[in-house]
């Protein structure tokens, strides 16, 4: 089974990233593989362990995004493709999906694995757009995945519980954080990753035309801050007393 996992380099969720003057995220510092993508890589590796095949990582980003791919390769993925093009700076979800779709189409994969959404953009739009562009069904928010021959079964997490989804391969899945515990890269894996192939492709090579982005930024402002509240140090009784007073004032007790 040939599996493509989409991966993204994002500002370190535990770091303190900044914004450039043009309001794009500073990607030159404290960037990591999106933690949400590690679950997809892990799931893909487990499927490969069972059924054999190949795990391909596909990313879009500046040259530095190789590091994110390299991390996935050191976990055990086989190859990487990095779509890198100055015209992609500030790309919206549709252009991102078009570029990823072009790279994935060239590989004729059985399964595409994505995170439900990226840590930084959080639009959640790339996976359904990618499924549409590739002409495959989407089975999303997977917390459990099973492949038997060409048959794919997914437990889809919903707001109220879960659903069982079924489809034939090829297909696209998005995976939740709960699906599998991402493995750590071993020293051997890190060494092996150095010699694994990462192919860099431009938009022209993929024959993708940047279209009109979904939106133009009119302004970016600080989110409305809540008025500063009161902070008390609990001394064993003061905490509970103050909270009881607040609940009483709010008329909920």
């Amino acid at each position: 089974m040939k599996i493509a996992v989409t991966v993204k380099q994002v500002p370190d969720p535990n770091g303190t990233p900044g914004l450039d003057s043009d309001n794009t995220l500073m990607r030159d510092r404290e960037v990591v593989l999106d933690p949400g993508d590690e679950y997809g890589i892990e799931e893909a590796l487990q499927l490969k362990d069972k059924a054999g095949g190949e795990v391909l990582l596909v990313s879009m980003g500046p040259d530095k995004a190789r590091d994110a791919i390299r991390k996935g390769l050191s976990m055990g993925a086989d190859r990487g493709v990095l779509i890198s093009d100055p015209q992609l700076a500030g790309a919206d979800a549709l252009l991102t999906a078009k570029a990823l779709a072009a790279a994935i189409r060239a590989e004729a994969v059985d399964l595409v694995v994505c995170a439900t959404e990226s840590y930084d953009g959080s639009t959640g739009m790339v996976p359904p757009m990618l499924a549409e562009l590739l002409g495959v069904p989407q089975l999303t928010f997977a917390k459990q995945v099973e492949v038997t021959g060409q048959r794919l079964t997914v437990h889809r997490q919903t707001e109220a519980g879960y659903q069982v989804l079924e489809a034939e391969l090829p297909a696209l899945i998005t995976v939740t954080a709960g699906i599998a515990e991402p493995r750590y890269a071993s020293l051997k894996g890190i060494m092996a990753a150095r010699s694994k192939e990462v192919k860099v492709m431009s938009l022209a090579e993929l024959a993708v035309e940047p279209g009109r982005p979904a939106e133009s930024v009119e302004s970016i402002e600080d989110a409305a801050a809540r008025a500063a509240g009161e902070i008390v140090e609990d001394d064993g009784t003061s905490g509970v007393e103050r909270i009881m007073a607040a609940l009483t004032a709010a008329k909920v007790i």
Binding site: D92, A93, L94, L95, A97, S122, T123, G124, M125, V126, P127, P128, M129, L130, A131, E132, L133, Q138, T140, F141, Q157, T158, E159, G211, R212, P213, A214, E215
Partner: peptide, 24 residues
Amino acid sequence: GFTSDSREVAGRLGARLDVGVISN
């Protein structure tokens, strides 16, 4: 709505119509 069911449809629709989507 930015809900798990609607977002699946909105994303596919945007790609089908070739128009970008503003999400979240």
